[in-house]
Design a protein around this nucleic acid. Sequence first.
DNA 1: GACTGATTGTACCGATCGGTACAATATCCG
DNA 2: CGGATATTGTACCGATCGGTACAATCAGTC
Lengths: 189, 189
Amino acid sequence: MRRIAPERDQLLAIVAEVFREQGYEGASLSLIGEATGLGKGSLYHFFPGGKEEMARAVIDNIDGWFEENVFAALRDSADPRAGIERMLEATDSYFRSGRRICLIGAFALDESRDLFASQIRDYFGRWVTHLADALAQSGHGPAEATELAEETVAAIQGALTLARAANDLDVFSRALRRLRMRLGVPANI
Amino acid sequence: MRRIAPERDQLLAIVAEVFREQGYEGASLSLIGEATGLGKGSLYHFFPGGKEEMARAVIDNIDGWFEENVFAALRDSADPRAGIERMLEATDSYFRSGRRICLIGAFALDESRDLFASQIRDYFGRWVTHLADALAQSGHGPAEATELAEETVAAIQGALTLARAANDLDVFSRALRRLRMRLGVPANI
DNA sequence: GACTGATTGTACCGATCGGTACAATATCCG
DNA sequence: CGGATATTGTACCGATCGGTACAATCAGTC
């Protein structure tokens, strides 16, 4: 009965979905238990720190996914333009073209923000920084690159909010299309 | 002891602040009572429908403020550019240059979204529509005007999220400055 | 000052909250 | 198999949740 990594990832994915659907306060232990099929005994065995530790682990897990799939593309691509395009593709796929909201963005707005402030700041900070680096490499001046990166990340967050508010997924697709043009990246095939 | 309009507005403003700080679930009746100085008796006297009615009234109140101060500027200005500039000024002042989040945007993301879906959709829908009209009047083609309006509202929401996440108010100011340029509106003096 | 209706405080309700304790059970290792 | 460790279910805790009931109190009106 040793912990197996994929199991933990899957568990965190389920818990993340509950937080996404219900918010931090709304995600009660009974809802989490129901979604995961685990009782309180198991939940507190894996997360002795309770709900707060669960949320922290979920954020770390998401952060890790972005590090591997989004930030890495920006950091490691030989061609910065290709890296930016890969970032946009990974972003689109992660948010399921607007079907899914950004849990970390939602946490930034709600009452849980104080608990997770540093994790939240870190996540967005690295996103902006890595994107700004790629933009600088592709010819933008440093100051302009930072502003454009900040604008891009904000546009993604805003599009997720608006897509959810309007209940219209196309809002998100349109935002990504505009970003591709704005960032000088070839349109999606 | 008749109800007086300003009192109600003030009451709703306080309740709104509690929802903003704590989210819908997090805003308990005891917190609301503490903030307003009202006991449960009074609270349920003014809002027989309980917490849900309070939130609905708060959303209506915010919606009304935007209707009067933001949408009206877009709708009634002789010069559409001046209307857009007035919209941006009112927006900046409402969100206190990023110190305040958009409660309706936050509700769009969290578990309360289903309860208030139509009010949320309406609010953002009218914002985009009125802005698109003003942009069309100022020379943009209809399709382009709609996209630009959507992009603008999303940029504002995203900037609020990012400003809160980074704990950096300048994120919001920078976003507004970029929007002024993008919308062809004279820079703030 | 008595009547009327708006407003308020308090006690109370059942349900659920996050969290703890712990015995029972499963799995692995030798 | 036996022992050690990992995992689980269940019962329980005090606190708080949103909501209800209702009597007391207040402000105007006549």
